[in-house]
Amino acid sequence: MSNTMRASYLLKQGEVAVKEISIPELAADEVLVKVAAVGVCGSDVHYYQHGKIGPYIVEQPLILGHELSGTITAVGSAVDASRVGQRVAVEPQRPCRDCEQCNAGRYNLCPNIEFYATPPIDGAFAEFVKIQSDFAFEIPDHVSFEAAALVEPLSVCIWAARRAEITTGSRVLIAGAGPIGVIMAQVASAFGASEVIITDIAEDRRDFALKHGATRAMDPRTENVEGLAVNAFVDASGVAQAVYSGIKAVGPAGHVLLVGLGTEDMNLPVSHIQNNEIWVTGVFRYANTWPTGIELVASGKVNLDVLVTHKFGLDDVESALNAGKQPGSMKVIVNPGS
Rank of each mutant, 00 (worst) to 15 (best):
G51K: 02
K52V: 01
K52E: 15
I53W: 12
I53V: 05
G54K: 03
G54T: 10
P55F: 10
P55I: 06
I57M: 04
V58T: 02
Q60L: 11
Q60I: 06
I63D: 00
L64H: 03
G65V: 01
G65R: 02
H66Q: 10
H66P: 08
T71P: 13
T71Y: 02
T73P: 03
A74M: 11
S77W: 09
V79L: 11
A81I: 12
S82C: 07
R83I: 12
R83P: 15
G85F: 07
Q86K: 08
Q86E: 15
Q86W: 08
Q86R: 09
R87F: 05
V90G: 04
V90H: 06
E91H: 00
P92A: 02
Q93M: 13
P95L: 04
C96R: 10
C96G: 05
C96F: 06
C96Q: 04
E100Q: 13
Q101T: 07
Q101I: 00
Q101E: 15
N103H: 12
A104N: 14
R106Q: 14
R106Y: 13
L109D: 08
C110R: 07
I113N: 13
Y116F: 14
A117Y: 06
T118P: 09
G123M: 03
F125R: 00
F125C: 02
A126M: 08
F128W: 06
V129S: 03
I131A: 01
I131F: 06
D134Q: 13
F135V: 03
A136F: 13
F137Q: 01
I139T: 02
P140I: 09
P140K: 13
D141T: 11
D141M: 13
H142C: 05
H142V: 09
V143I: 11
S144P: 06
S144E: 13
F145Y: 09
E146G: 00
A148Y: 04
V151H: 00
V151F: 00
